[in-house]
Amino acid sequence: MNDNALLFELFSILLLLGLGTTLLLINMPGWGLISIAALLAGVSYLLRRGAVVGSEVANQVSGH
């Protein structure tokens, strides 16, 4: 996972949030996009967190 991928993910989340909010403001269905934005943010955070924890464990194992 590189910095560009993170940039794209942040852009996607903000885009979905922005579109969803705009739709809600004009009385249109925006909750779907907002929910997807939240889901993507969760997936992005959890997978990155998992990768960090995984590499820490690998470092500790190789250190011993």
Binding site: M1, S12, S44
Partner: peptide
């Protein structure tokens, strides 16, 4: 495959 592909698949 990472979260990039999930974002791409939606955008």
């Amino acid at each position: 495959y990472g979260s990039f592909i999930a974002s791409f698949g939606v955008v």
